[in-house]
Write a protein that binds this DNA or RNA. Sequence first.
DNA 1: CTAAATACCCCCATATTGGGTGACATTCCG
DNA 2: CGGAATGTCACCCAATATGGGGGTATTTAG
Lengths: 212, 212
Amino acid sequence: MSYQNTNLIKICLVEDDNIIREGFVTLLNENQGFKVVSAYNNCEDFLKNVQNDKPNVVLMDIELPGMNGIEGIERTKKLYPHAQIMVVTVYENDDLVFKALCAGAGGYLTKNMPSQRLVEAIREIMNGGAPMSTNIARLVVASFQKNHNSPLSSRETEVLELLSRGKSYSNIAEGLFIDKETVRTHIKNIYWKLEVHSKAEAIEKAMKEKLI
Amino acid sequence: MSYQNTNLIKICLVEDDNIIREGFVTLLNENQGFKVVSAYNNCEDFLKNVQNDKPNVVLMDIELPGMNGIEGIERTKKLYPHAQIMVVTVYENDDLVFKALCAGAGGYLTKNMPSQRLVEAIREIMNGGAPMSTNIARLVVASFQKNHNSPLSSRETEVLELLSRGKSYSNIAEGLFIDKETVRTHIKNIYWKLEVHSKAEAIEKAMKEKLI
DNA sequence: CTAAATACCCCCATATTGGGTGACATTCCG
DNA sequence: CGGAATGTCACCCAATATGGGGGTATTTAG
C-alpha cells in the first residue's frame, strides 16, 4: 500500500524565482493527491510557518536570498523533523550535494529534469525512497568507492583504518592480535609509502586518495 | 547523445540461480542495443574471462558459491576497471550495500524489481548514472545524515571533527586560531558529554551516533 | 537575566609518537 | 627456483601528546 493512496501529500515550496515557484505550484496542484500548502521565496518566512503548515514534503532551493538552503534544511529538521526535504537546484557541486545530504535532505533533483520527474520524485520520497538526479546519484555512489590502486598492503590499510578511528598503537595491536612493535613497523612503512611524517598527514592523504 | 544509440552494450552475468540467470539472458537479449556476451554461475569463471569478454556492464549477484560478489567486484575492478558493475541481489543488508559500493559497484538493484527496471538501469549506468532500488537509495542517503539532536555545541563538533582526522591538540588549536588550552577544555567537555575517557572512545561514539 | 558556550591558564604523571636499525618467516610472482 | 613484498617482532632514544585535576573571564542566545 502506498502512502498517496490514503492521504493527501502536503507540500511546501521554498524557491526565490517567481516563475519557477509559480510553475511548480501549478504543476503540483494539478496532480491528484498533492496539495501545495504554501510557497515562500525565502527560508526565514518558511521556517516561521513550517510548524503550522505541517508539510509532508518540502521542495527547497539552495541559492536563496538571506539564509541559504543548507542552513534552511538543518533548521527545518530541528523545527519539524517529520518533513521530507527535497532539494531542487541548478547546482551539481559536490560539496553542496554532500552538505545538503548531511543536513538532512532526503532527495536531490537538478532543475534540468523533465517536470514529470518532480511528481514521481515526490511520490518516491513519500514511499521511503531517496530520489536523485542521475549525476547526483553517481556522485553519491562514487563517494564510497575506494582507490583500486592503493600502494598500501591490505594489512597496512587495516592499520591505517584503525589509526583513523583514533586508536593508539596499543589499541590497534590488541585489535589485530599482533605486537605493538609490529604496528609501529606497519605505520613506519605506511608513512614511507605515503611520503608523510605524521598520523594527521597520513590520514589526510589516505582520505583524499580514498585509500581508506 | 546517449551511449546506447551508438554502440552495442555488452553485458556479462554472474548469477548462480539457473532460472534467474537464463531469464535475464532472454530478457536482455530481447532488447535492441544489448548483447549478453556470457553468463556465469560463479565469480572464478567470470574473472578468467572478463578480459576477453570486455563487458560494458556486469550484473553481479552477491551470494555465490566460492568467491562472494564483494570480492568479485574488487577483483573485476582490478582486472578490467572499464566495466560498470551492477549488483543484483535479494540482500538489502546495510553492510553488504556499503561494502559493494566501496568495492566499486556502480549500481545496486534488489531482485524484487519489475524486470523492465533492469533494462532501464543498464541504460542508466551506461549514461553516467547510479541506479539503485528505492530502499537502497534511502540507505545510502541516510548514511550521510547527521544527528540533529547532538549534545555537542557547534564548536565542540568542530573540534571533534578535527580530532577524528588524526590532528593533535596543537594542530587543532592552529586550525581554529585558538589556544591549545582552549582545545583541551573543549575536549574535556566533549568527553564529559559523551561519557567517555579517551579520543578513541569519543570518535567511536560520535561516529556511531552520527555526531560527526 | 541566566545558563550555556567559548576561551584561556596552571600543574602533573603517563602514554604516545616518530625516527633509527636490525632480524626472521611466509607468500607470491615471474 | 629466487628475489621482492609482506608480515612479524625487538630495542634504542627524545619529544610530544594526552588525560585528569584545579581555576577564571567574556560572550551569546533564549
